[in-house]
Design a protein around this nucleic acid. Structure first.
Lengths: 199, 199
DNA sequence: GTCTATAGCTGGATAGAC
DNA sequence: GTCTATCCAGCTATAGAC
């Protein structure tokens, strides 16, 4: 059987507009607001969601992939920069990616098709991170405490996601302190940050 | 107006049974499966949810508070133990608490009443953690890298939640490494772990 | 006091209109 | 090829049965 039925209208402008509306809804009101009726209303288009997407699962998966592709490109750019660790940390802390991701993780709790999509995508992201950071940590100036790229990548990912999550609940106890701590660690590994912060 | 209407049957056995069923459903199938019909079916009781709870929000809030009270008691016990940092870390990594918490955080995305409940509860937990760990970190043997209790608490919380979340997606790259790293850090601060691990 | 039946809404999917 | 009308399921909440 074919892995996925391909439609003739796979890249129509309408389809893209529907995905854009779905993404906006997801960010503004959460995934629960992403229903066929609301997407069409938001896009100002007739409700023909099921003409463009077989099921809502298909729509969500496509939306996720579109965002993941975008983010992966950003990540590769960051990891190619002169200070990959600083660039990676800044990217992780970027609110826009984090918020969408949070919604998809929540969505995965009750849409199994999304779950495997996220897992597979996460592995791809992690592979790229490890390949790049292994090189950084091999550099002679690296402190011995940070020899394991796996641990460093996981720590940075965990902290950034936690900060974003807590922000959503208006919590910020310890945020400054931990950011300062991470900044110090990165400085030890990669030297002072060159250039300006994005946020 | 009264902040919350109090019912005569606030602690009836039926009410407790319904909360138990709701909790089990939440753990087994996710919060989306926690509907009035399914709770009643799971409990083997007639569907009189709205006799015992005015709204589903009320049920969820009560379920959250029940779990939070239980967890807070566990946390206080852990922080009173001879090795509060080790006990705290073990508690954080306990799957049962983490899984329920994950569901409530997701639920908060589309139930605003839950959001403020979680935020308030988090502040209470964090206060207790900081009070206890500030004492631990004052001890002379503490390495200078861990002077900020806010940062230490946040790091441990972030890492434990991230590990639990990734587990739900069958991801475990770097998990061993980071656990080993945290164990080393705790050993530096609080010495070798005495006694046995719970998991 | 406890539970049942049902109203009223919203959603995904589909048959078929144009 | 594009869109609309409608079906049916599942939910919360309520009115009222017993």
């Amino acid at each position: 059987m074919p892995a996925r039925r391909r439609k003739s209208n796979d890249d129509s402008a309408t389809r893209t507009a529907l995905l854009d509306a779905a993404e906006a809804l997801m960010l503004e009101e959460g995934y629960a607001a992403v229903t066929s009726r609301k997407i069409a209303a938001k896009a100002g288009l007739p409700n023909a969601i099921h003409y463009y997407f077989d099921t809502m699962d298909e729509l969500f998966i496509e939306l996720f992939r579109r965002g993941a592709d975008r983010s992966l490109a950003q990540q590769e750019e960051a990891l190619r920069s002169p200070q990959p660790l600083w660039a990676f940390w800044d990217l992780l802390r970027d609110r826009k990616n984090g918020d969408l991701n949070t919604e998809f993780v929540a969505l995965a709790n009750h849409r199994k098709a999304i779950r495997s999509e996220i897992a597979e995508s996460s592995r791809t992201f992690r592979r790229g991170q490890l390949a790049a950071l292994a090189r950084v940590l091999e550099a002679p100036r690296s402190a011995t405490a940070f020899r394991s790229p796996e641990a460093v990548v996981l720590l940075l990912s965990a902290v950034s996601r936690f900060l974003i999550m807590e922000n959503a609940f208006d919590l910020d106890t310890g945020h400054e302190e931990v950011v300062e701590f991470v900044d110090q660690c990165i400085t030890e590994i990669e030297g002072e940050r060159a250039g300006t912060r994005q946020h």
